[in-house]
Amino acid sequence: MSFDSSTSVWWPFVFILIAGWLATDVWRFLGVYLGARISEGSELLVLVRAIATALVAAVIAKLVLYPAGALASASVTLRIAAAAFGFGVYLMSGKRVIAGIIVAELVLLAGLIV
């Protein structure tokens, strides 16, 4: 049964609960269960943190290379250049997040206008 296949008022909410809430919180709850069995400072935690970090990094790369919506109108070269400039400025400014973001946005804006 798809999202629109029932006229019941409740069906969309049941759909969201099962395919949305259950599908995401099952992982979060499993994480709490497993996390309770790992002590802070353990080597296993360094590994888990590395895996989580690589995962989020993969999300970032996908957001830049395969963006949704309006960002797709900027060329891939422009997106990568903006991200690289922004990250460079972030590192050079002594890890100031806001400096990196502003420069990246300015490069993207300049590329979109020109």
């Binding site: 943190r49 970032i60 830049v64 946005e105």
Partner: peptide, 29 residues
């Protein structure tokens, strides 16, 4: 909207690097 959408990866990119606790974290990134 393009500028707004681009904020998310840029924020993640910079703050994830900043929150890495050890060399393994930066390498993982």
């Amino acid at each position: 909207s393009a500028l707004l959408i681009f904020l998310t990866p840029m924020y993640f990119l910079t703050s994830l690097w900043g929150s890495a606790r050890e060399m393994a974290g930066r390498l993982a990134m």
